[in-house]
Design a protein around this nucleic acid. Sequence first.
DNA 1: TCAGTGATTAGG
DNA 2: CTAATCACTGAG
Length: 182
Amino acid sequence: MEWRIKLHTDRMKSGVRLSRDFYTRDVLDVAPEVPGKNMVIRLPGGSQERFRITEVEAYRGSEDRACHAFKGRTARTEVMFDQGGKLYIYLIYGMYWMLNIVTGEKDNPQAILIRGVEQYPGPGKLTKSLGIDKSFYGEDLIFSDRIWLEDIGLVQPVKFGPRIGIDYAGEYWKTKPWRYFL
DNA sequence: TCAGTGATTAGG
DNA sequence: CTAATCACTGAG
């Protein structure tokens, strides 16, 4: 019960913005550290809010059949080939914007799908609620004044399991435990 | 379980 | 130009 109270009282507390070095590591090192971090965002109304990230998934390079970079470099996936710390945004099923954070070094395409924050579980629901759309494509979390991540000095135990919604990727990639959540 | 919905992509 | 695909969601 105490952890619930702590989550709530800490929610608005500001932390330290994560720097480039955090993102330029391998996605499998970065992704497990993202749940528990705060996402700071300027909402459509103009107010700045903080949301605790609760669930993410790792997509790792041109070998990962579930990763959009698997099919090579296209206009859509271009930003994944840039250095870590930028946003990869795309539309799915004609309705939902997906929010991803690019990781790794330049020309090593990787990204982390943000699947949920504390108040808005679900990748499509959180982008809709927070007003995240194509205009965030390529946004740099190191310099942006409307969205970034911050460390609030809490280490949360992270659980893990297989990624969601990638049946097409085949048994090997589908079963990799690359989903991380609180 | 299943339809909605439209950008993106590869292929003529 | 066409047609298939799709890191989802909510209704029944």
